[in-house]
Amino acid sequence: MRLALSVFLGGLMGTGLRLGIDQSLPHADTAFPTSTLIANTIGALVLGWLVADLWTRPGLPAWVKAALGTGLLGSFTTFSAVMVSLVALVAAGFSALGWIYLAATLLLGFGAAALGLRLGARLRHRRPPDLPDAGGSL
């Protein structure tokens, strides 16, 4: 039950953040979907960092991973929005713009994820070692 609630609450936050980006950068169906590209690129960067740094921390509860990964980032980034925008552009006769958008999405998404992984790994190595708990021996 805790995992489901975590995903739900994370999803609420991610949806709210995504709505904020969409309202800040509105676009017509026949225009370049900048807001979707930005949200998905930011999400790929953050997920890369989470996987390389936060997820490696001992004792991190599963509900935190579920809330941040599946909930927050799962609702903030959406593959379906990419496809809806691509189909809308192609259907409106803007095929070249659609393919440019798809290429930009893939390149920026993979690049951001790789950068997030590198940053997370670097931060993980700078983090002080975990101290033993109060009941453990030194």
Rank of each mutant, 00 (worst) to 15 (best):
4 A>H: 05
4 A>S: 14
5 L>Y: 08
11 G>H: 01
11 G>Y: 02
11 G>C: 03
13 M>V: 14
13 M>K: 00
14 G>K: 03
14 G>T: 04
14 G>F: 04
14 G>W: 01
15 T>E: 06
16 G>H: 12
16 G>W: 10
17 L>Y: 09
17 L>A: 14
17 L>W: 13
21 I>Y: 12
22 D>Y: 11
22 D>T: 08
23 Q>A: 13
23 Q>S: 14
25 L>W: 14
25 L>Q: 09
25 L>T: 05
27 H>W: 07
27 H>G: 04
27 H>V: 05
27 H>K: 05
27 H>D: 04
28 A>G: 14
30 T>D: 10
30 T>L: 03
30 T>F: 11
30 T>K: 03
31 A>H: 10
31 A>K: 00
31 A>C: 03
32 F>K: 05
32 F>R: 10
33 P>K: 05
33 P>G: 07
35 S>R: 01
38 I>L: 15
38 I>W: 12
39 A>I: 10
39 A>R: 01
41 T>Q: 03
43 G>Y: 02
44 A>R: 04
44 A>G: 08
45 L>I: 10
46 V>L: 11
47 L>M: 15
47 L>K: 02
49 W>Q: 02
49 W>N: 00
50 L>D: 03
51 V>C: 02
51 V>F: 12
54 L>K: 02
55 W>I: 02
55 W>A: 12
55 W>L: 05
55 W>M: 09
58 P>H: 09
58 P>R: 09
59 G>P: 07
60 L>Y: 14
60 L>K: 12
61 P>A: 10
61 P>R: 06
61 P>T: 08
62 A>D: 09
63 W>M: 06
63 W>V: 09
63 W>H: 01
65 K>G: 00
65 K>I: 12
66 A>S: 13
67 A>G: 12
68 L>N: 08
69 G>N: 03
69 G>I: 04
72 L>Q: 01
75 S>W: 05
75 S>A: 15
76 F>T: 03
76 F>S: 07
77 T>Y: 07
78 T>L: 12
79 F>W: 14
79 F>V: 07
80 S>A: 10
80 S>K: 06
80 S>I: 06
80 S>H: 09
83 M>I: 13
84 V>S: 04
85 S>R: 04
85 S>F: 05
86 L>E: 00
86 L>T: 15
87 V>K: 11
87 V>F: 11
88 A>C: 06
88 A>S: 00
88 A>K: 08
88 A>G: 03
89 L>K: 01
89 L>D: 00
90 V>W: 07
92 A>H: 01
93 G>L: 05
93 G>R: 05
95 S>V: 00
96 A>V: 11
96 A>Y: 12
97 L>M: 15
98 G>T: 02
100 I>G: 10
100 I>M: 13
100 I>D: 03
102 L>C: 06
104 A>W: 06
105 T>P: 02
106 L>G: 03
108 L>W: 06
108 L>A: 15
108 L>M: 15
112 A>E: 03
114 A>I: 15
114 A>Q: 14
115 L>Y: 13
115 L>F: 14
116 G>Q: 08
117 L>K: 07
118 R>Y: 14
118 R>W: 15
120 G>Y: 03
120 G>N: 04
121 A>Y: 13
123 L>R: 15
123 L>Q: 09
124 R>F: 15
125 H>G: 13
125 H>L: 15
126 R>S: 13
128 P>V: 11
128 P>A: 14
129 P>C: 08
130 D>N: 11
130 D>E: 15
130 D>C: 11
131 L>K: 13
